[in-house]
Design a protein around this nucleic acid. Structure first.
Length: 234
DNA sequence: AACCAGGACGTGA
DNA sequence: TCACGTCATGGT
């Protein structure tokens, strides 16, 4: 069911090419890299992914791209620059992403964390260990940690978000009070351990969620509610 | 002009 | 543990 749903979504929307990399991706001006799963290629791109993951917390991606551009414009797009910057100018630079006071603190905490645990070190650790380390950082919760693991560190960890929960709830595949961990293991037990699949699946669920699960009543006109139920009877 | 966004944290019960 | 308030700008 979970794996069949992936096939259906992929066929319907096509590959999404996540995580978008707009600033540190020289060649295509297009931030998405459909069909190329060799990203990220360097630590600058890993940093961009992690910053984007923090900035997009409960925030539209469009606003995040502006904040990332403003960071770059202000010369704040590196670990060292972020370490040297005070909270106030940092907050002003990311202002357009909202919650800028909180997120300035989160970004500070994260780059200080990176000093002790750079991407290379994190990649050497076991997934559960790296995840536990990330979760100690203030401002990095389950979803943000898993986004960093999946898209910046190339670990095959499934990212759960609000859209996915709403979707599965309407499919009747989870209970309303299902926890993050429960939804995550539902996906991870059903899917083969395949990095591109995990990366695309989360992106596809967000795409689908934007279409049918952003405003109430949720699920109105969702063609997959019928499709998936037909498939589940086989 | 409300309503929502690719959440996380702090608090009180 | 868990429900609830808070954080904030920009798009629709």
């Amino acid at each position: 069911m979970i794996d069949t749903l992936y096939d259906l979504l992929l066929k319907y929307y096509g590959p999404r090419g996540w995580w978008p990399i707009s600033l540190s991706n020289p060649l295509p001006r297009h931030p998405y890299h459909v069909g190329d799963y060799t990203f990220p290629k360097n630590d600058a791109q890993r940093l961009e992914i992690a910053l984007g993951a923090i900035l997009t917390q409960n925030t539209a991606w469009k606003n995040v791209t502006q904040a990332l551009a403003d960071l770059s414009q202000g010369g704040l797009f590196s670990v060292s620059a972020l370490l040297d910057t005070d909270l106030t100018p940092l907050g002003q630079a990311i202002r357009k992403a909202g919650y800028f006071n909180q997120k300035a603190n989160y970004i500070k905490a994260f780059v200080e964390f990176l000093q002790q645990h750079p991407f290379g070190k994190l990649a050497e650790m076991s997934v559960s260990e790296a995840r536990a380390k990330l979760l100690t950082v203030k401002g990095i919760g389950f979803e943000t940690a898993d986004c960093i693991l999946l898209y910046a560190l190339g670990q095959t960890v499934f990212v759960v978000d609000a859209y996915s929960k709403r979707f599965l709830r309407h499919l009747g595949w989870i209970s309303p009070q299902a926890t993050y961990a429960q939804v995550q293991s539902l996906f991870q037990q059903a899917l083969p351990l395949d990095l591109p699949c995990y990366q695309e699946y989360h992106a596809l669920l967000v795409e689908h969620g934007k279409g049918y699960y952003s405003k109430k009543p949720y699920g109105l006109g969702d063609p997959f509610l019928k499709l998936a139920q037909l498939k589940s009877k086989c």
